[in-house]
Amino acid sequence: MGRIEWPELIEFIFHHIISLLIGVFYSIGCYRYFRRHKAAQIIFAYVLTLPTVFLYFPLTYLAEKPTPPLLDFTAIGYWTLGHAIYAVILFAVYTINEH
């Protein structure tokens, strides 16, 4: 952010703060609108996670630290897989904790 060079640990914490906010939004949305609809809950998790897949491109382009090439399909695949797994975990944790 700006000219500040954040340590990697702080960047990791920022990432988890965003994840926490997404989790809270997901929980509230599921509770209010999809309480008894498991299929809608998993779709909602993927809908919330889908934009992160596309963030790969601007974040890689704007990165000041070394990153894979913009069109490195292996890196894009790992990025996408990681965020898809996040959606599954979001759904699973909500499902486990809703009772």
Score class of each variant (00 low, 15 high):
T74R: 13
I10T: 10
F73G: 05
G2Y: 14
F54H: 05
A84E: 09
A40P: 00
T60H: 07
Y46F: 13
F25H: 09
T80R: 04
A63C: 03
E5W: 12
S19H: 13
H37R: 09
G23L: 04
R3P: 07
C30K: 00
E11N: 13
A87K: 02
Y61W: 15
I18W: 11
V53A: 14
M1F: 10
I42L: 09
A63P: 04
L50T: 02
H16P: 05
H99W: 13
L70F: 02
I17Y: 11
R32I: 12
G77V: 02
W6V: 07
I43P: 06
V93E: 07
T95S: 14
F12H: 11
R32V: 11
G82H: 04
T74S: 13
K65R: 15
G82V: 01
L48N: 00
L20W: 04
I76D: 00
R36L: 10
V53M: 14
Y56L: 05
P69T: 11
P69S: 13
Y56N: 07
Y26K: 03
H37Q: 12
F12T: 12
I13A: 09
F57L: 12
P69G: 08
A45K: 10
A39L: 04
K38H: 07
V88E: 11
I43Q: 09
I89P: 08
I89G: 08
I85N: 09
V93R: 10
Y86F: 15
L21F: 03
F91E: 03
Y56P: 06
R35W: 12
L62N: 11
A45V: 02
W79P: 03
V47D: 07
I43M: 13
R32H: 08
Q41D: 00
A45P: 08
I89W: 12
L71F: 02
A75R: 03
Y33K: 08
E11L: 12
E64H: 14
Y26P: 02
L59W: 06
Q41P: 02
H15M: 13
F54L: 11
P68E: 06
Y31M: 06
I17M: 07
L21K: 05
T67A: 09
L62K: 14
Y78T: 04
Y86I: 05
L9W: 12
Y61N: 15
I4K: 11
I10K: 11
I96Y: 15
A45N: 02
L70Q: 02
A75Q: 01
L90S: 00
I18S: 13
E5T: 09
G23N: 06
P69Y: 02
I89A: 14
M1N: 10
Y78N: 11
G29N: 08
G77W: 00
I28T: 07
M1V: 15
F25R: 10
W79K: 01
L50M: 05
V24D: 01
L50A: 11
E8N: 12
L70H: 03
V88G: 08
Y33N: 09
P68K: 07
P7A: 07
S19N: 10
E98P: 06
F34G: 04
I85A: 10
M1A: 14
F14H: 14
T52F: 14
T80I: 12
A84G: 12
A92T: 06
L90C: 01
L70R: 03
F57N: 06
R3H: 14
F57D: 01
D72F: 03
L70K: 04
L59H: 08
K65A: 12
A75H: 03
T60P: 03
I43K: 10
I17C: 09
F14K: 14
I42S: 03
G2W: 08
L55S: 15
A87M: 04
A84T: 14
Y33R: 02
